[in-house]
Design a protein around this nucleic acid. Structure first.
Length: 272
DNA sequence: TCCTTATGTACAA
DNA sequence: TGTACCTAAGGAC
């Protein structure tokens, strides 16, 4: 379930369960065996997240050895209390200490990197609404100069880091913006509102570990509709609601392919 | 038991 | 633009 909020939550959860303790590290699947042997018995010092990238720092706080993790589309992380059960053969990396264990499966990336390599990842990512140092103006400079659709720009991690297919669909709906609008036609005021909204939505996403985007006045209870929650676990306006009536105007929600991803929007509520 | 699908990205052509 | 990669759940048979 990896959009940026998931990764920031994982950084918190890894820290809560393992920071300042020596960890037993293994790679039952075998693809990270040498690195796991190198890290085994060292202390998890810190965890960091930028967009959908997670970094676990082991050893000396001034100069940690970093594990770079990207979940991709399928990656999953599961935590549990000690004693850890026998791992299944798809576990890429298991951390275990006296009180807890955590299994990583199916990541696109799980690699040891140096501090300069970590910096290079930060350098190629755009501002992340969940990071305090983020500069939304840097994102707007790229958006306002681009003929690319705002839907594609929101998914471009060099422009803004951490937004995925759910937040993209939902934030464009919440601001009444057609996904096919060219970036250069987005006003500064519209961008500021989107950024501000993403910051709040994603912070709530970290807190609840799920994506909820429906305003209180539009919840099923408030509108006298039957309760409904998407498979991903949250309450949304348009994501994965193709051909169902828009919660606000009743028009059928539209869907289309955009750069090999599913796009969802309300053609009546969202304006070019 | 097979097929499809998914909140992602990188690289080849 | 297409394809490869990684996993697991759900639905069709």
């Amino acid at each position: 379930m990896p959009e940026g909020h998931t990764i920031h939550r994982l950084a918190q959860d890894y820290t809560a369960a393992f920071a300042r303790t020596a960890v037993h590290t293994t790679s039952p699947q075998g693809k990270f065996t040498d690195a796991a042997a190198l890290l085994n018995g060292t202390v998890l010092t810190t965890a960091d997240a930028h967009g959908k990238h997670l970094f676990l720092g082991f050893g000396a706080a001034e100069d940690p050895t970093w594990v770079h993790i990207h979940l991709g589309l399928f990656g999953k992380v599961t935590f549990g209390p000690a004693p850890a059960p026998p791992p299944t053969d798809t576990v890429r990396l298991r951390l275990a200490n006296d009180t807890a264990y955590v299994d990583l499966r199916g990541p696109t990336t799980c690699a040891l990197i140096t501090p300069p390599e970590k910096q290079a990842v930060h350098d190629r990512l755009g501002p992340d609404p969940l990071r305090p140092d983020a500069d939304p103006a840097a994102a707007y400079r790229r958006i306002s100069r681009s003929r690319t659709t705002v839907a594609a720009l929101l998914m471009d991690q060099k422009v803004i880091a951490g937004v995925g297919n759910v937040y993209r669909a939902e934030v464009l709906f919440r601001h009444g913006i057609d996904p096919y609008r060219p970036g250069k036609d987005l006003t500064r005021a519209e961008w500021d509102a989107i950024w501000h909204d993403l910051t709040a939505l994603m912070r709530e996403g970290v807190r609840n570990n799920r994506i909820d985007t429906v305003r209180p006045e539009h919840t099923p209870e408030a509108m006298g509709r039957p309760p409904r929650v998407d498979d991903h676990g949250g309450e949304v306006y348009v994501y994965r609601r193709a051909n169902q009536p828009c919660h606000l105007c009743g028009s059928p929600v539209r869907t289309a392919d955009l750069a090999a991803r599913n796009l969802f929007w309300c053609p009546a509520c969202q304006r070019r």
